[in-house]
Simulated scan of single mutants.
Amino acid sequence: MVQSPFPSQITKWRELRGLTQRQLAARIGTSSSSLCRWESGENTPKRDHVEKLDELLRASGRLLKVWETQTSGSSLPPWMQDLWRLKEEAVHIEFLSPVLVPGLLQSPGYARIVFEHGQPLAGPAEIDDLVSMRCARYDRLRERNDPEVVAVFPHSALTCVPDEVRREQAAHLVSLGRRGRVRVHLVPEGSALIGITSPLLLCRLVDGSRAASSDHVSGNVLYDETIGFDRLSELVKRALGSALPLEQSMEVLERLST
């Protein structure tokens, strides 16, 4: 098993500051034997001790971030490991969707079809509630941070639904695009988002940090910018390269809305 880098990071920062285990333990109010076990990986300190370590060793949050990754699998704060709250803190959102229009940008008719197929055990009233909640979410984000949204998805995401729903959804996207905060890039017919096997979302947050989410049947997998984020960013760049420019995409949407 690969050992977490957290124990070695304590040692690194302690030695960088010229402190012995005994000296550092005394400053944070613990025993030198406890600190020794932390540095050997035998035990993991609690958050309040890690915060003291980070402050005393002048690690500028880096030691705390490594500890968070070890204990939770992500350096994102626990509250931010909820996908919706992640979007609420975003100032810039990028969607890659290999099949459908991203949920945040769906019109009521389109969302209803998605839920009717994706939630086969839900009754009509529950479907109504799901549609209502989904279609209200973008307005909530506009009220909070009004993030820039870039969405890349295939032309077939619009032509795979009945004509009336296709017109409604395309008109909705045109309306959002005219505000200037939503940019849609359609992958043209005959092309596909190669390498994108599930919906992918990348966010730049209000504090300048970045996070990502990959959507699967059983739930979302969240990534912070320390683990796998560069690969996901590269997927976004390549997807944009294979999609139509904004102006051409808007022209196609205009045609599909009539």
Rank of each mutant, 00 (worst) to 15 (best):
P7C: 00
S8R: 15
K12I: 13
K12A: 15
L16M: 11
R17H: 13
G18F: 06
T20R: 10
Q21I: 14
Q21M: 13
G29Y: 06
G29C: 03
S33K: 15
S34N: 14
S34M: 12
C36I: 09
R37W: 08
W38F: 12
W38E: 02
S40G: 13
S40C: 11
N43T: 15
P45I: 02
K46I: 07
R47K: 15
D48R: 13
D48L: 06
H49T: 13
H49I: 15
H49G: 09
E51M: 10
E51G: 00
S60F: 10
L63I: 00
L63P: 00
K65R: 15
E68M: 15
E68N: 11
T69M: 14
T69K: 13
Q70C: 00
S72D: 14
S75I: 04
M80S: 09
Q81W: 03
L83F: 06
R85S: 09
R85D: 08
E88I: 08
E89D: 13
A90L: 01
H92N: 13
I93V: 08
L96V: 08
L96P: 08
S97C: 06
V99C: 01
G103S: 08
L105K: 05
L105T: 04
S107D: 02
P108E: 10
P108N: 00
Y110M: 01
Y110F: 06
A111E: 14
R112S: 04
R112L: 01
F115R: 05
F115S: 07
F115Q: 07
E116S: 09
Q119Y: 13
P120C: 03
A122D: 14
G123W: 01
P124Q: 02
A125G: 06
D128S: 03
L130S: 07
S132E: 11
C135V: 10
C135E: 00
C135I: 04
Y138R: 11
L141C: 03
L141M: 09
R142P: 04
N145Q: 06
D146Y: 07
D146E: 09
D146F: 01
P147A: 00
V149D: 02
V150D: 08
P154D: 01
H155S: 05
S156L: 07
L158F: 05
C160I: 12
C160F: 08
C160N: 10
E168S: 02
E168H: 00
V174C: 14
S175I: 04
G177T: 12
G177K: 04
R179V: 14
V182Q: 05
R183G: 06
V187Y: 02
S191L: 10
I196N: 05
P199T: 01
L202Y: 01
L202V: 12
A212G: 05
S213G: 12
S214P: 00
S214R: 09
D215Q: 10
H216S: 10
H216C: 04
L222A: 02
Y223K: 03
Y223H: 13
E225P: 09
T226D: 11
I227L: 07
F229H: 10
F229S: 03
F229R: 02
F229N: 02
E234D: 15
K237H: 12
L240Q: 12
L244W: 09
L246N: 05
E247C: 03
E254V: 15
S257F: 02
